[in-house]
Amino acid sequence: MKKYVLDLKVTSVESLGERYLLLVAINPAGRLPKMFPGQFAQLRIDESKETFLRRPISLHYVDYKKNEVCFLVQKVGKGTASLWEKRPCSTLNAVLPLGSGFTMPTSPQKKVLLVGGGVGIAPLLFMGMELKKMGVRPAFLLGARSKTDLIRLDAYRAQGDVYVTTEDGSEGEMGFVTQHSILQIEKFDCIYVCGPKPMMVAMAYYAKSTGTPCEVSLENMMACGLGACLCCVEDTVDGNVCVCKEGPVFNIDKLKW
């Protein structure tokens, strides 16, 4: 897939609580390229004295009619925090689309589960939208520490059924996503997971124990994002491979978890 460096123009900046930011941008120079759920962009961070590299951020959704791309960003450090300074009409320099995305199910009859934790829910919205287009009504299982960390639920509900867990029980079932009752009640044909590594490892274990095909999206630290520097490698059955190029989405059968 051809990759581009684009000077996107920010159209909307919305803080979702203290930790999350919804950043919408259009491509003023032409049509946005075709992109797929699970792929990401490398966003340039400007005017930060303490950071240097771009930040890899997954595609929250792409709306080709509006020629816009949306990023859901968590404030992690100084780099991501500087994106809070963006305003409508700010330039957002992005390299995209990068990496390989989720494998779409083979038929609309498949029962699909999308599991997300924290900011890992971000790429699952795009995935849900594409699934809906192909006639699949996905189930989302979303986990957070507390009710205030559950964001954008309405956007997910518009694509499919949403099940929620919180660690403090302030919304949905109390506990981790892997403890949710839906996993005991329903049998899924494929599972897609993005979130903190312990959560993905636990879901991979569940998928293996039930014989369900499963893909996870990793977020190893990256430099180039293009498969050139070999910094973001994951130890797989094929040896060390670049998460930015061979991933970030991997079938769990490839991983040594």
Binding site: T51, L53, N220, M221, M222, C231, C232, V233, D235, N240
Partner: peptide
């Protein structure tokens, strides 16, 4: 092994 990279100023 990973991690192989650290950002600096």
């Amino acid at each position: 092994p990973y991690p192989r990279m650290a950002e600096t100023a």
